[in-house]
Design a binder for these strands. Structure first.
Length: 410
RNA sequence: CGGGGAUUGGCGCAGUUGGCUAGCGCGCGCGGUUUGGGACCGCGAGGUCGAAGGUUCGAGUCCUUUAUCCCCGACCA
């Protein structure tokens, strides 16, 4: 991508109506555009990051047998009434609308009931399971208060997966595989050091659910962690009784602020029973399906990564999700720079090429702000030595690299 | 939803006890000089001051209502 062609512009000033670091930087760098509180549009650079995160999640979900689909944002009232969750008193984040004939519709804040309804058409026998499906979908939630930039919005992208199993035992197998898959996702995103599988409130069916919490000052949860034992506990279940079950004591744990970047949940059979999702077992009996739900907040993850990795000069993206690997700067040597741009691009290396007719200082400042992992500068000075200047975004000093070596380096 | 703060060109801001054609920086356009960490000079375009109503000879400044944004709290299967 040539920066001269990119329609988004960077801003020298920090937006005054944001205090969350992720929102300030993402807006300043032109990754997102704020439409209203808690509602952000993703411009080409931001969309690129989002898609890269999704791709990592997708690969790991596929690896454990997830089948991707996409559900809808418009939902039927009747579907939610079967479980009593259409009521605004029960679910306080509903956005609702109406067809022109007056029929009430819900706007998707979750897809649990929807997927169960759909699976009634596809699951009939024990032979049809195990099966798990997932989607990346926009969730619409009428939150009382949006905050922390893209980390808690009223409209956000979530990966939600659902598992359908014949019994608790079969469910357990996939549930455990999903924990491992989630760990891989956070590892690939560079968050594994600070992300904990956290014991949280389990609901009606299990003692605990598992949250994936990333230590982050801009988060809204408090968890208690023990790094050595790799144990983390959500504040909401911090009782002596629970701690004893988990084999830790209060004084071994440190309280930290964190952001929930994933949650896996065992629904048991109640929802399927209520909604009429039954299968026939080997003996011909009708049995309710055992349901599991597995979420990852994709846009929130982007916010957490922006928040955690940025420095005082701007964004710092992990190579795995950066919009491009290389930020190429030409200082008055557009012909040579264009040659290098073409060579790198043809080698399959994604490049943001600053070919704009602006001063060097502005190009450097924007390279820092935009946050690609590798910066390559080509100028008269470097060409005299048949080389380019290289600097990783996280380094403070640059080095000269021979022109024909740079491709291998990045 | 309770409490606090804010709203003035695209962005960031200043506007005395109400008083003249509403300013400044950045950005933008044109011309020129510059060219390795957000250059400089000159000229220029762009706002009726969140919205509605009111007080007044006169309102960005005062009053009422209202919308939106941010923060703290409550909430967050």
């Amino acid at each position: 991508m040539r920066l001269s062609q990119l329609f988004t512009k960077t801003s020298k000033t920090v937006p005054a109506d944001e205090t969350a670091r992720n929102a300030q930087l993402l807006i300043q760098a032109g990754y997102v555009y704020k439409v209203m509180a808690g509602v952000y549009a993703y411009t080409p650079l931001g969309l690129s990051v989002l898609e890269n995160i999704k791709q990592i999640v997708r690969e790991e979900m596929n690896a454990i047998g997830g089948q991707e689909l996409i559900m809808t944002s418009l939902q039927r009232q009747e579907t939610w009434e079967t479980t009593g969750r259409w009521d605004d008193e029960t679910v306080d984040v509903w956005f609702k609308t109406k067809l022109q004939d007056g029929t009430e519709l819900g706007l998707a804040w979750s897809h649990e009931e929807i997927i169960v309804e759909m699976m009634k058409q596809h699951i009939h026998s024990y032979r049809d399971m195990p099966v798990q499906v997932y989607q990346f979908q926009t969730k619409l939630r009428n939150e009382l208060r949006a905050k922390s930039g893209i980390m808690r919005g009223r409209e956000f992208v979530m990966k939600d997966m659902y598992s359908f199993n014949v019994d608790a035992e079969q469910h357990e197998i996939f549930y455990n595989r999903s924990i491992e898959a989630y760990k891989k996702v956070y590892e690939r995103l560079g968050l594994d050091d600070d992300t904990y599988v956290t014991f949280a409130a389990g609901g009606a069916f299990t003692e605990f659910s598992h949250e994936f919490q990333t230590i982050c000052e801009a988060g809204e949860d408090f968890i208690y962690v023990n790094r050595e034992k790799g144990v983390a506990v959500n504040e909401e279940v911090m009782t002596d009784e629970n701690l004893a079950k988990l084999g830790v004591t209060r004084d071994e744990l440190t309280k930290v602020k964190s952001a929930e970047v994933g949650n896996i949940f065992n629904f048991g059979t109640e929802k399927c029973e209520t909604m009429g999702l039954f299968f026939t077992d080997e003996s011909g009996k009708q049995i309710p399906v055992h349901l599991g739900s597995y979420g990852i907040g994709v846009t929130r993850l982007m916010g957490v990564i922006a928040e955690k990795m940025a420095d005082d000069r701007g964004l710092v993206w992990p190579a795995a999700i950066a919009p491009a690997r290389v930020h190429l700067i030409s200082i008055g040597e557009d012909d040579e720079a264009t040659k290098l741009y073409d060579a790198l691009t043809q080698a399959g290396i994604s490049v943001i090429y600053d070919d704009r007719d602006v001063r060097a200082g502005q190009k450097f400042a924007d390279a820092d702000l935009l946050g690609m992992p590798h910066r390559v500068v080509i100028s008269k000075k470097t060409l005299e030595q048949n080389s380019v200047e290289y600097k990783a975004r996280t380094q403070s000093d640059s080095e000269l690299i021979a022109l024909d070596k740079i491709k291998d380096l990045v």
